[in-house]
Simulated assay, not measured.
Amino acid sequence: MTDQPIAQLDSHPSPASPAPVFSRAAVVASCVGFVLIGALQALYGPAIPAFREEFGLSPSVAGLGLSAHFVGGVAGVLLFDRLYGRVGNRHILGSSYLLMAVGAAGFALAPDWPTALAAALFAGVGFGGVDYGLNQLFAVGFGHRSTAMLNILNAHFGIGAILGPALIGVVGSEHYPAVFLCFALANLPLLLCLRGVRNEVPLPGGAEDGGRGQVLGRSLGSVLGVFVALYVLHIAVEAGVGGWEPTHLETVGYGAGVAATATSVYWLMMTVGRFLVAPLALRFSAQAIITVSCAGMTVCLLAASVPALAPYAYAGVGLFIAPIFPTGLPWLNRAAPRARRAGAVVIAASMVGGVAAGPALGKAIEWSGIRAVPLLLCGVSALCLAATLWLIRATRSR
């Protein structure tokens, strides 16, 4: 079963147009944009030692930089969702790129920490706009190829997340202002490619049947709630592995170097997984892909509780978890084509899940110990699988 064209619209959608949503140049520019937002999110962590030295910060206060970024990201998603369908797509994306550029430059040049936090918040709003805007438009812009194209788009986020820390490592954290300034400048050429983005919102799939959608036997609110739960839970697994894999591996006997390398491989496998699933998305439904992904990461997390298998099992988690975020958006929009804000809600929820996962998992680890990390995450992954199976039944087509 392949994906059909979908969208989230306000109550008065624009007429359908035969023009494509993206030109080829705009597709390439969009992928570059996702490299940039991946890099921006990943730049804060490696630069923390320099923040602390420059502004005299404690570790917890220095960590507020990334928190401000995520808060801005949620605000950006919700703000630009309000504008989607009312303001042209080019204006939404152009404003987002400019906000990221200005925020990143402000962070680099900030004379004090409060100003730097405000700039990080500002850049986060632009980040959220790009994340929401491009995910939304890729979900409606390629017909049955939308799932494949979303996986390719989000794979470029992973490329940026790998390159950002590597760049900080090459130049040294003390030179983080120069890196953030280069990032700010890199956003500006993308504005020239926005002419290749169709400005009006495409007609939603399901409009021809009166917008009934596919939600049967369950309330729309229940379906959206379980989709939000799926996104929050799988992001919790993603962030939990990324944050605790090194500590767990060292606790079970691996050296610090091996643990760090294994964690890098985990993030690399997430990027590879999205590229690999793109051709599969042309042959298999989103439901089937997500079911296999949730089952696979659950098995891998269970295997990670065996010390000899742990580094390889965590790499498998990265491979299986990779398609869930981009593949779920077309399924959501197709299941509830008239739930205009559904995409914004789940994208914002994924960001909130990433922020909340750390403290929640930390409390659970205090109670159970470091060695229980993979089993705790396995339980969360099993909930993802249960949510997916419930959604398959609740959104079954007539």
Score class of each variant (00 low, 15 high):
residue 357 A to Y: 06
residue 336 A to H: 07
residue 87 V to P: 14
residue 156 H to W: 15
residue 153 L to A: 05
residue 282 L to S: 13
residue 178 A to N: 09
residue 115 T to W: 10
residue 257 G to I: 00
residue 210 G to M: 10
residue 360 A to T: 14
residue 101 A to Q: 13
residue 39 A to E: 10
residue 359 P to A: 01
residue 185 L to M: 08
residue 97 Y to D: 00
residue 323 P to V: 10
residue 223 V to G: 05
residue 365 I to V: 15
residue 170 V to P: 12
residue 299 V to Y: 03
residue 251 T to M: 11
residue 75 A to W: 12
residue 214 Q to E: 13
residue 67 S to P: 08
residue 71 V to N: 01
residue 320 F to Q: 10
residue 263 T to I: 00
residue 354 G to Y: 05
residue 39 A to L: 15
residue 31 C to H: 11
residue 266 Y to E: 09
residue 12 H to Y: 02
residue 268 L to W: 00
residue 72 G to R: 14
residue 223 V to Y: 11
residue 291 T to K: 08
residue 263 T to Q: 07
residue 119 A to D: 09
residue 236 A to M: 15
residue 281 A to H: 07
residue 80 F to C: 03
residue 26 A to Q: 06
residue 282 L to D: 15
residue 230 L to T: 08
residue 25 A to Y: 02
residue 15 P to C: 00
residue 104 A to Y: 05
residue 340 R to K: 11
residue 347 I to P: 06
residue 33 G to M: 08
residue 271 T to A: 13
residue 340 R to P: 02
residue 282 L to V: 05
residue 75 A to L: 15
residue 158 G to R: 05
residue 257 G to N: 04
residue 162 I to K: 01
residue 329 L to K: 07
residue 297 M to V: 05
residue 195 R to V: 07
residue 221 G to E: 04
residue 40 L to K: 01
residue 370 I to S: 08
residue 103 G to W: 06
residue 131 D to S: 11
residue 240 G to N: 03
residue 189 P to N: 03
residue 275 F to G: 04
residue 220 L to C: 03
residue 116 A to I: 00
residue 32 V to Q: 06
residue 40 L to W: 02
residue 303 A to K: 01
residue 92 I to D: 01
residue 239 A to E: 08
residue 95 S to H: 02
residue 115 T to P: 11
residue 239 A to F: 07
residue 91 H to C: 04
residue 148 A to H: 04
residue 365 I to P: 14
residue 244 W to G: 07
residue 129 G to E: 07
residue 128 G to N: 01
residue 70 F to D: 00
residue 294 C to T: 15
residue 28 V to T: 03
residue 175 H to E: 03
residue 58 S to A: 14
residue 355 V to E: 04
residue 89 N to M: 04
residue 45 G to D: 09
residue 32 V to R: 06
residue 385 L to K: 10
residue 137 L to W: 08
residue 309 L to H: 03
residue 224 L to C: 07
residue 79 L to I: 13
residue 265 V to H: 00
residue 83 L to M: 15
residue 259 A to L: 02
residue 309 L to V: 11
residue 154 N to L: 11
residue 30 S to W: 10
residue 220 L to K: 12
residue 383 L to W: 05
residue 179 V to Y: 14
residue 297 M to F: 15
residue 171 V to N: 12
